[in-house]
Design a protein around this nucleic acid. Structure first.
Lengths: 169, 169
DNA sequence: ATAGATTATTTGAAGCTTAAAATAACTCGT
DNA sequence: ACGAGTTATTTTAAGCTTCAAATAATCTAT
C-alpha cells in the first residue's frame, strides 16, 4: 500500500516490540470496577441494615452451606483469604456467639467451625435481603445477558486459573 | 395448560412469595471469584517482582495518567476508596520519594499529588510487565469473547450504578 | 519406630480500609 | 462583610489482610 520506508509491519514486529494489550487491560479494569461498585454497596448496606461487616457475612455464608462445619483450611481455600486472616475473623465471630469451634476428632491440629443457632438465624435473615440487593444490581440485564455473562465469566475463571497455576506452561 | 389446583402462577405470586434470585447470586459470586483470583495473583506478583503493594501500584497508575497531578478527592473518587485511606497511602509513597505533594494554588485546602521522576520511571517498568500478566489472564478468551464480555460488563456497571444511586426510583 | 516432610493453625508486624468526627478553607446569598 | 452551608483533608479507632515465622500434629518411607 504505502511506499514509505516503514521496515516491518505490526505482525513482524511482534517479537521485538512487545504486543499491545491495552484491550485486556481495559477489560480487567472494567471487571474490577463492577466488582468494587457492587461490593462497596453491599458492604455499606450490611453495615447500615445489620451492623455486620462483609467478611463476617462471607464467612457465615460459607458455613451456612456446610451444616457439619468446616476447618479453617477449607474456609481459607473457599474464601481465597489467608489462614491468619481467618483466625482473627473466627475469633471475633465466636466471641459474639455466632460460631462454634471444636477440635476435629480425627485430626487434633484441625479446628472444625460451624454456625450456632443464633449465627444461622441471623445469617438467613441477612441473606434473604442480600439476595434481593444483588438481583437489583443486575436488574438491567436480560436473562440472555445474564446467561452470556455467566458463560464468559466461567471462561475467564478457567483462563485465569491456567495463567495463575504452576507456570509450568 | 394444567388443570391442577395450583392457585397462582409465578407472576401472580411475585408479591406474596419473594422471588428466587439464586441465578443473580451465582452470577455475582462468579464475578467476585474472577476478580479475586486475578487480583490475588497480581498482588502476589507485584510483591514478588517489585516488592510493591497493589494499592501503591493502583495509586501510581492513576497519577501516571494525570501529568499535572490530582487532588486527594479526585483520587478518592477514581479509585473508589475512602479519603482517609488515601491520606496514609500518599504519605507512605511520598516518604519513599515516589510522590510529590504541593498545596493547590487556587484552593489552599487541596493537596495536588503527582509522580516524581523516580515514581514515574518505576511505575512504567512495572506497568509494562503488569499488562502482560493481565493479557495472559484473559488469554483463553477469543477477541469475540473479550468484546462480548466488555459489552456485558458495561451493561452491568450501568445497572449497578442505577441500583446503587439515590434510591429515588 | 523414627527422621524428614507435609499439613493445620497461630502469632506478630506492617500495612490497608472504613466510618465517623474534627479541622480548615471555600462559596454563596444577603 | 457576615454566617450558613459545602468541600478537602486529616485524625482516630476498630477491624481486615497479608506475609513470614513459629508451633504442633500428622504422614511416609524406610
Amino acid at each position: 500500500m504505502s511506499e514509505h520506508a516503514i521496515p516491518l509491519d505490526a505482525e513482524t514486529n511482534a517479537v521485538a516490540m512487545p504486543e499491545d494489550h491495552r484491550d485486556e487491560l481495559r477489560l480487567w479494569l472494567r471487571l474490577l470496577t463492577c466488582t468494587t461498585m457492587i461490593e462497596g454497596e453491599v458492604r455499606r448496606r450490611l453495615r447500615e441494615r445489620f451492623d455486620v461487616t462483609l467478611p463476617r457475612f462471607d464467612l457465615m455464608a460459607q458455613l451456612d452451606k456446610a451444616p457439619d462445619g468446616m476447618t479453617l483450611s477449607d474456609l481459607s481455600k473457599r474464601m481465597m483469604v489467608s489462614n491468619g486472616n481467618l483466625t482473627g475473623l473466627v475469633e471475633r465471630l465466636a466471641a459474639s456467639g455466632h460460631l462454634d469451634r471444636r477440635t476435629s476428632e480425627t485430626d487434633r491440629r484441625a479446628q472444625v467451625i460451624s454456625l450456632t443457632e443464633l449465627g444461622r438465624a441471623e445469617f438467613r435473615t441477612m441473606a434473604a435481603e442480600h439476595e434481593s440487593w444483588i438481583a437489583a444490581m443486575f436488574g438491567d440485564l436480560s436473562r440472555r445477558d445474564q446467561a452470556d455473562l455467566m458463560r464468559l465469566l466461567a471462561k475467564t475463571k478457567m483462563s485465569a486459573r491456567r495463567a495463575t497455576a504452576g507456570e509450568e506452561s
